[in-house]
Amino acid sequence: MRPETRAAYGFLSPWVIGFLGLTLGPVIATFVMSFSDYDVLSSTQWVGAENYRDALDDPHAHAALKNTFFYTALYVPLSIGIALGLALLLQSAGRLKGVFRTVIYLPVVTPPVATGVLFLQLLNGQTGLINNVLGTFALPTPNWTTDPMWIKPGIVIMSLWSVGSVTLILFAALAEVPAHLREAALVDGAGAWRRFYHITLPMISPAIFFSVVVNTIASLQLFSEVYTMYFGATTTPPPEEALFYVVYLFEQAFRDFEMGYAAALSWLLFLIIMAITAVQLVVSRRLVHYRSD
């Protein structure tokens, strides 16, 4: 075995050991559980595919999935676009690059629960900072947290708070774009936009694709911030617009103790993620440029 291969296995081993030792068992258990009726206290009963059939007929699961897709479709392109814009700005930040990089990444380390609580205040329709800013520019100031139409966009705004991690990935990718390619294009008379569109964008397309895949998966699994905002210690029941798929799955498991049903929901989510990722892979063949050097 080559030293590089040994090193690769060495670096991979912590994750592999963790996955085999801590995750694989529960994964297999949930798969078995998804074919059973299990409420923690009573004995488990085999119900075949009933949980999966129930999920397909469950209007709350449909609503949760619809909300999750809406959020993902809005958040992923917005987060990539904003992250790319910030990464380009960072690139031209000169000596202060390091400071700005830290500032942009800082929100990512904020605990999700704190983020949820913070944004309940920031998004308040009457006194929140976001509406104060919008109002200054005579823009509409919706009730982000109480108007059903604006709840999901409000959650997207909250999620954009942690766009720093994607920004850093794209910033690193931008740094890898060979300068001679841009210089050659400049000599050939290409403007800034053409250099960005025909050289920079293709060169960083693998990083963008990676970010799209990872962000899509994370969006489909959104939980902590939304749960804190709408499902935590509150006397008002959460609006259906805030019911995301993993929140519904969690409530089925740990509020209603429908463990078998929740396990089926988790496996359905897994299949959905796999299908979406497969589509993204197929589409990426046309759009992603891998360097051959």
């Binding site: 996955f19 798969f31 559980m33 488990t44 998966i217 993993v246």
Partner: peptide
Amino acid sequence: VLGCVAAISLATAACGGVGDD
């Protein structure tokens, strides 16, 4: 890549634990 995504998704999508009666 798909294999890696499958593994990551499995690790994160699965929920709940096993109890007994």
